[in-house]
Amino acid sequence: MSIQLTILGRVDTMARPLRLPLAGGEVRAGFPSPADDYVEIELDLIAHLIKHPSATFFLRAKGTSMEGDGIKDNALLIVDRSINPQPGHIVIMSVDGELTCKKLRIMGSRPYLVASNPEFKPIPLTGHDCHNWGVATHSIQPLAPGFTV
């Protein structure tokens, strides 16, 4: 399957909101604007990233099969079990008892799980014991060396 997933846990629906500062303006890849150097509001990341807390859990992804979709090795995935998977969604699926993370596609008239790395072949769902675990809604990974999530 080419990607290993580790279940990390569920969302704590009883936790108090953690509000962090959200700077106003946009981040530019060119020259910075001094006018944007202020805090506009506070943002609760859990409320922003998780729409259905009781149906959401976290997974750790290992492998390179989904790098083209921004899921790098060791990424933290937010997975929502309440979303009905549709073609184009990145899903967590058990295929013959092995968890995998792939994009759901319809090829011809049959469903497949497709990696975003062309080194990996599509996985036909027909003829396999398949169970949907949820739709990956976000991938979180560090940008600075030495940081982990």
Results as ranks from 00 to 15, higher is better:
Met1Phe: 05
Leu8Lys: 08
Leu8Tyr: 03
Gly9Phe: 06
Asp12Thr: 01
Asp12Lys: 01
Thr13Lys: 03
Met14Asn: 10
Ala15Cys: 07
Ala15Phe: 01
Pro17Leu: 04
Leu18Glu: 14
Leu18Thr: 07
Arg19Leu: 10
Leu20Trp: 05
Leu20Pro: 01
Pro21Tyr: 03
Pro21Lys: 00
Ala23Leu: 09
Gly25Thr: 00
Gly25Tyr: 00
Glu26Met: 00
Arg28Met: 03
Phe31Asp: 03
Phe31Tyr: 04
Pro32Met: 06
Pro32Ile: 01
Ala35Val: 08
Asp36Gly: 02
Asp36Phe: 02
Asp37Leu: 00
Tyr38Gly: 02
Asp44His: 05
Leu45Thr: 04
His48Val: 04
Ile50Ser: 11
Ile50Cys: 13
Ser54Tyr: 12
Thr56Ala: 12
Phe57Ser: 09
Phe58Gly: 12
Leu59Gln: 07
Arg60Asp: 12
Lys62Cys: 11
Gly63Trp: 13
Thr64Tyr: 15
Ser65Ala: 15
Ser65Val: 05
Glu67Cys: 13
Gly68Ala: 13
Asp69Met: 03
Ile71Tyr: 08
Ile71Cys: 10
Lys72Asp: 13
Asp73Tyr: 11
Asn74Phe: 11
Ala75Met: 10
Ala75Leu: 06
Leu77Cys: 12
Ile78Pro: 08
Ile78Val: 15
Ile78Gln: 01
Val79Ile: 11
Asp80Phe: 06
Arg81Asn: 08
Ser82Glu: 11
Ser82Phe: 08
Pro85Val: 04
Gln86Ala: 10
Gln86Phe: 05
Gly88Thr: 11
Gly88Tyr: 10
Ile90Asp: 13
Val91Ser: 03
Ile92Ala: 15
Ile92Thr: 14
Met93Leu: 11
Val95Leu: 01
Asp96Val: 05
Asp96Ala: 02
Gly97Thr: 05
Glu98Asn: 07
Thr100Trp: 10
Lys102Leu: 04
Lys103Gln: 15
Gly108Val: 03
Gly108Trp: 09
Ser109Phe: 14
Pro111His: 07
Leu113Ile: 00
Val114Tyr: 05
Ala115Leu: 09
Glu119Thr: 01
Lys121Glu: 15
Ile123Arg: 05
Ile123Asn: 01
Ile123Ser: 05
Leu125His: 09
Leu125Phe: 09
Thr126Pro: 00
Gly127Leu: 06
Gly127Glu: 10
His128Ser: 09
His128Gly: 03
His128Asn: 10
Cys130Ser: 12
Cys130Glu: 13
Cys130Val: 13
His131Glu: 14
His131Asp: 08
His131Phe: 09
His131Cys: 09
Asn132Thr: 13
Asn132Pro: 02
Trp133Arg: 14
Gly134Ile: 02
Val135Ile: 09
Val135Leu: 12
Ala136Thr: 00
Ser139His: 07
Ile140Asn: 14
Gln141Val: 01
Gln141Ile: 08
Gln141Lys: 14
Leu143Pro: 00
Ala144His: 04
Ala144Leu: 15
Pro145Gln: 12
Pro145Asn: 08
Gly146Ile: 11
Phe147Tyr: 09
Thr148Asp: 13
